[in-house]
Design a protein around this nucleic acid. Structure first.
Lengths: 339, 339
DNA sequence: TCCTCATGATCAATCGGTTGAGCCTGCACA
DNA sequence: TGTGCAGGCTCAACCGATTGATCATGAGGA
């Protein structure tokens, strides 16, 4: 399928017009009017030759790459898949492509250098870690960027989900079922999302007039969840329900419950944040809080495309957050677990 | 962090040399020698101004984008996360960036058009579906491409994993444990990987002198796996072991086993292809076959970078394939399930 | 008949690097 | 003293599209 490179000049020659005309037709340039029959001739030539503009030349001239980037720490995490979906759709709506890359591994630093100047119109960063090095890199690039679902004193542009509201929803569900001893398996200490979810749990407990139950840092990993849950179950008066900061640690926590010879939800109810497909395949299917992740990606791209160079943004995404009740939550059996 | 655009000319002016010299220093051009002290001066100027070459200009002139693309159908599938990892590393080794995008959704077609000419040096396609439309698009692009782990009559360049060997390994493990009635939950009918895995199962059964057990198409989804497994268990003489084409359908299959009141591995042993993290968190942890997925991504980029325009490639990746034994497989209880 | 003006098309500079060709300079050799 | 040659730089064309400035044409008005 060898196909010679077709340029503007080829199209212009075939249509017997100047290259400028072709360019204006192709871009629907409103500044200059083109006679309809000329336009037809040009479009016919474009179609006949299969002309497609050279992106590099266009970018060079216009200083716009028509490309946004989204960097994330871990492609294996399905949370990001949702975000990517929304961001891609939004980019396509702006006539741009979204490219994703991982912000870890061989070093985001070198990777960003490769991106060079003029290759990307804006960068979305999701769940970034290794902040100082990362931010230094970003400053060296003349590229606008934005953090997704992460605040930080050093960051002036971010969009976050309402993790606090999500946490309240989870806790209110448990309270509604009759639970009073509701523990919390928190995310990594210091992680922004983790802090917000913990704050929501605390607020909801207070609002319900319940004593703040035990809170244990579990990280965002199965191993962390397993250890934290084991610790909770070993306490003299274990909780009848747990609000877990994410699904990964909930998986570990479920394992600990099983290993203790207890049953979910009979002995312990469990809710976690983010309604991943995975949640419905666990045993038992896990009750979760669904967050507007795709919306987060969409909004991120939208902002990147419209912000002025020095604008700052601090937005809490106002999307639907809902509790997806599955079989991991049920009213407490009086007497609690261990009985 | 406003920072004026720095160009070659700025660096040249500061270092008091021609732009050509700067270019040659920056690119380590071997064709022309530069005096060491001149080189020093240039590098100092580059550092002082924070110069970084404009990617668009360079691409325009050299007709190389230093960028490879990897398109995949589903970011939520952890199989691809591994492939991405390998591909990114290989690209970095070639001084290129890897960008990924999804091949489904709003339409790969429009998306590829956006990529335009000259933005990508080569494309890797993983698990592509919607073949005819896709291939038509690709033909319209003057971009070399390669399929990962998928053969097709219409495709002249691909690298595949040795799925057949993986399947044999799985079956041999079950045979080694003493199983004789080994069923197979196959992938989607017509899918290339599914066919190869089924072929491997068949060959291994034959080699072991066993009658070919029942085979049911289960797709690559939990729902498909659940349905297929339920069907198998309803048979008069159910299998004591199942080789499942992938982890997703194994998850569904496990659920069906549970719902039938049976136990894994006591009543049914189960092995699936691809050693995802997830596998070790299932209940019970799932025995899997680990395939060199990162290697596949790595090799794909490597080939893209080195192939001549009309070369074709049909390569079976020769990487390590190993069985990861977990708790979902055990010797059969004599008498089989249902007893 | 001449001038004005809108319309529709062309000209040519420009974006920022890359690279083959050509130009100095000084040294070696006859 | 003249020639040859190589090392080290500079010149300038070029990649392909965009876009402000300019030009040609014909219609409408005085």
């Amino acid at each position: 399928m060898k196909r010679a490179r077709v340029t503007l000049a080829d199209v212009a020659a075939l249509a017997k017009v100047d290259r400028a005309v072709v360019s204006r037709v192709v871009n629907n340039d409103p500044a200059l009017s083109i006679r309809p029959e000329t336009r037809e001739r040009v479009l016919a030539a474009v179609a006949q030759l299969g002309y497609r503009p050279n992106a590099a030349a266009r970018s060079l001239r216009t200083a716009r790459a028509h490309m946004f980037g989204l960097f994330l720490p871990d492609f294996a995490n399905p949370v990001y898949a949702e975000i990517i979906k929304g961001a891609e759709a939004a980019a396509a709506g702006l006539g741009c492509v979204l490219v994703t890359g991982s912000s870890t591994g061989a070093g985001l630093g070198g990777y960003m250098d490769l991106l060079g100047q003029g290759r990307i119109d804006g960068l979305l960063l999701a769940g970034a870690e290794g902040e100082s090095e990362l931010l230094a890199q970003l400053d060296r690039m003349a590229v606008p960027w934005l953090m997704l679902n992460r605040r930080s004193p050093a960051v002036k542009r971010y969009v976050i989900l309402d993790d606090e509201r999500a946490a309240r929803l989870a806790v209110e569900h448990l309270v509604g079922l009759g639970h009073r001893r509701i523990a919390h398996l928190a995310g990594p200490e210091g992680a922004d999302t983790a802090l917000r979810r913990s704050a929501g749990w605390r607020a909801a407990m207070r609002d319900a007039g319940l004593p703040e139950g035990p809170i244990v840092a579990a990280g965002y990993t199965p191993a962390g969840g397993a250890a934290a849950m084991a610790a909770l179950l070993a306490a003299p008066e274990p909780p009848t329900a747990v609000f877990v900061a994410n699904v990964a640690s909930a998986i570990g926590a479920m394992e600990s419950v099983r290993e203790a010879g207890l049953d979910i939800p009979r002995d312990v109810s469990m809710v976690a944040v983010h309604d991943l497909d995975l949640a419905s395949y666990l045993a038992p299917p896990l009750t979760t809080v669904r967050m507007p992740l795709a919306e987060l990606g969409r909004r991120g791209v939208e902002l990147l495309g419209s912000l002025k160079p020095d604008d700052s943004v601090a937005e809490v995404l106002d999307g639907p957050i809902e509790l997806i009740a599955r079989r991991s939550t049920a009213p407490p059996v009086s007497g609690g677990p261990g009985g």
